[in-house]
Amino acid sequence: MARFLKLRTPILTVALMALLLAVLSACASPQNTFDPKSDATDSILTIYILVTVVASVVGFAVLAAMVWLIIKFRAKPGVPAKQIHGNTKLEIAWTIAPIFILLIIGIPTMYWIAGTAEDPAPNVLEVEATGHQWWFEFTYPGMGLDGGDLITANELVIPVGRDIRVTLYSDDVVHSFWVPQLVGKTDMIPGRTNVLQTFNAYEPGLYYGQCAEFCGTAHALMRFRVNVKTSADFSTWADAHNAGPAAPEPGTAAARGSLGFATCSGCHAISGTAAQGRIGPDLSLFGERSTIAAGILDNTDANLKAWIGDVRSIKPIPEGARFMPTFNDGTLDEGQIADIAAYLNSLTAE
């Protein structure tokens, strides 16, 4: 039996060590739910830590009790087992005790739930997010040209320090809008209007978002970014978005690209230009976006050209799905693709 004991303790220490090492290395993750950047995730974190502490304390206590029982009551020759059938007082005790522990985590939960139902601050920014199969569309009602909607895609730009309320729609299957550091996830269900818990970002920065409900083949590559700017930058961004791009000076690749963009204008739109296609994502101010293809590639020229040329080599699209066609199979040659890429990159605020 001793051998058995010697075996158990080293394994537990190794496991704990590995655990600590793993936790430390993981803090660098951009989607770490344990370093919140908004009031919503902050409130969640307090309960999160409370529950984790309660669970681990109870866990270690029960594990320790079990190990102690095993060691103390090993079969020793000549010591018969005590034939105990039950003990009602003990039973009552360990039925009531868990109820108290559950109250400790239950009551804050109810307060938090009530909290989510409160109506937001008066100057709340209303935004609508629509899930499509494998990209996100964001609409700012009333902030577009002459009272229309300002529509962008895959990068939600919001002002810092202001309540944001996102209303969620879906165009095809169930998706789920989740920005781990800013707000807890809520599903985007076709035919239903879900409203996300209002959140208020603490500091400007770029935050990672992810579709969290399995939505088909390319679910893993359906990500987005939330770009929190100061309110001043936010309004300049909105105005630039509405104003539309300055005409590229003739003779440059961007100019040729803007003509070449006609093939794309059927699906894509750039506010302030002739292209008004609403099937694909909106590409206004594309140059300022940090990522392309629903948050999976950095917005570099090479990535952009590869993406325009052949989407299917980057994203697994089942044939028959409603998605961007492949262009580098002859419809567009290298030069044209490079021009369009240059034109898109030229769409910036200045």
Partner: peptide, 13 residues
């Protein structure tokens, strides 16, 4: 832990 709705909104899926 994820019986608590708040925590579940971070842990679900």
């Amino acid at each position: 832990m994820h019986a608590v709705t708040a925590v579940d909104s971070q842990q679900q899926d």
